[in-house]
Design a binder for these strands. Sequence first.
DNA 1: GTCTATAACTCGATAGAC
DNA 2: GTCTATCGAGTTATAGAC
Lengths: 195, 195
Amino acid sequence: MSAAREDLLARVVDYYARNGVRDTSLRTLAAAIGTSQRMLHYHFGSRGDVLAAVIEAIAGSQADQMAALFADDSDPLAAGRRNWVATAEGADRYGALWFELATHAMRREPYAAHLGEVMVAAQLRAFTAVYERYVDPSRARRLARVTVGVGQGLLFDLLVDGDREGADEAAAEFAVLVRTAIESDGGPPAASTSG
Amino acid sequence: MSAAREDLLARVVDYYARNGVRDTSLRTLAAAIGTSQRMLHYHFGSRGDVLAAVIEAIAGSQADQMAALFADDSDPLAAGRRNWVATAEGADRYGALWFELATHAMRREPYAAHLGEVMVAAQLRAFTAVYERYVDPSRARRLARVTVGVGQGLLFDLLVDGDREGADEAAAEFAVLVRTAIESDGGPPAASTSG
DNA sequence: GTCTATAACTCGATAGAC
DNA sequence: GTCTATCGAGTTATAGAC
């Protein structure tokens, strides 16, 4: 994986993020990012291989971001807040591409399997681990799925209607709902060594 | 709008729902639904006009479904439950198309403006009206946005990982969160004539 | 309204020099 | 690694008979 390829890939991702994947030919793409159609074939292979490389890049950086957001677990519930802030900040740039690529995973395209895993399963695991500090494992799983859903859904609505303030307020409201639920819950069955 | 066109449109929607819009040429589409490329042009116009007609059809039936789901307001909170059931039932058939078309609204394509309105604004209004029976208008708006987001987000996760049972459980868990929040809330500021 | 045929164009992919 | 040139297939859209 040469430096030239890395450089090219970054520009391809940026172009797709701004313009979408659909209706973008290799010709148009190459001209827009200052390279030639020939170079795209040379570095990536077919058009599908370009898309696959983009999807892998997005999946990879999403995984990295997740790891960073959940690294500091001194205040586990804050991970949810940090996760939403990061999501909303990247919305303008990567939001629409996020959903467009997600549809590839939904249609079970093999090259998008890893992305699907990162988009849902990885997040579910992370939030389940967080909630298991406060409630029993079964409810932790349910709360995790709701939380991941809220993240995806608020991003969806934000991208469609552009109401960032409303989205932020809703995220805060959800945090209240979760805190209330956890506080009135009996807590995890086993003893937890809270840090 | 002739009966032939209506009939054709229904088949186009069905094909797009099963196969996606991208990478589908008019030739392929026409052959698959038992018509000719010429007829698509005749009834709809350009390829873009076909897509616009599909989007309008989806927006229209979504609006109809919403109206039906919120018509019976004897138990307002049940609307959320009915909404989720309807969403999950249609997931396999229309879920991926829903998100694919949503990206057109996110990119502010003019022909998708109405769809965006139906996908978010209309739902926000409906759920805000529901919650205003229980809490003050400001919190009702926030809860409505969370609720709409949960619907979109749980559908997203369901389509990506296929876990219908997990999605249903999460929807039920969210209903518990909302009920708890409403019960511990002071209620709406003005007197409400509860039915 | 429906058909066949085709014009005019763009696409992905490759050839081959440097 | 990067360029220009091009092949062959596939695309939208239209023409024109019935």
